[in-house]
Amino acid sequence: MDSQPQRLLLVEDDAELGAQVVADLKRAGYEVDWQTRGTAQHEDLGRIYALVILDLMLPGVHGLDMLKQLRARSDVPVLVLSARNETLDKVRALKLGADDYMTKPFWPDELLERVRARLRRPTLARDGRLDVGRLSLDLGARKLWLDGREIDVTRVEFAMLSMLAKRPGEAISRAALAAEALDPERDGTERTLDVHVSRLRRKLDGGDMIATVWGIGYRLEATKAP
């Protein structure tokens, strides 16, 4: 991540809630601009902000109108806050190009997590290469490196790992992994998956890198390289 803190725009008319959200975001390491009225949008906010948090019921320009104008000029992610819990508000916001919405009331942690999720960079798969934490995968050549050292893995192990690495930090169900990696004729069924995973873990430094997710399957931890 850049050393420069990311800048966010909060548009929220309630003084107490706004102050609280600003404080939470600042504590999490973001820079925040806060405006308490809806305003007409004439410039590309994406050049200034990494994300916009937009309340809908605003004095001045209504949140949905602001969203529409903003979208006409910019691709900046927008997270909508809705207090009315009205289906049509939400549907309209998504149609107008909001990335997601949150319904009040919410816990500060929920907001922070949603902001982080929106700002998380998608894993880059340039020229068939995936870099996740300490791991590098060459999807075309089916090669794997751990901290730059090449690791020898089987076809099934590589297929599992690449599926996990495409969505780091997300749980992938055993059924999905089995469908992707196992050939039912040669490799057996879902039950043999655990055997493959434990072998792969051993090869990856005994690794807590692949976490077991209760009731679902596995997840590749999206930790940074040390």
């Binding site: 949150m102 500060p108 929920e110 999720a117 992938i172 997840r219």
Partner: peptide, 21 residues
């Protein structure tokens, strides 16, 4: 969204909440 809404509560109560999509 359902999971995100309940994640803070789950953490508070020491329950591991996960989703697969």
């Amino acid at each position: 969204r359902c999971v995100a809404r309940h994640q803070p509560l789950a953490e508070l109560l020491g329950v591991d909440l996960q989703a697969a999509l």
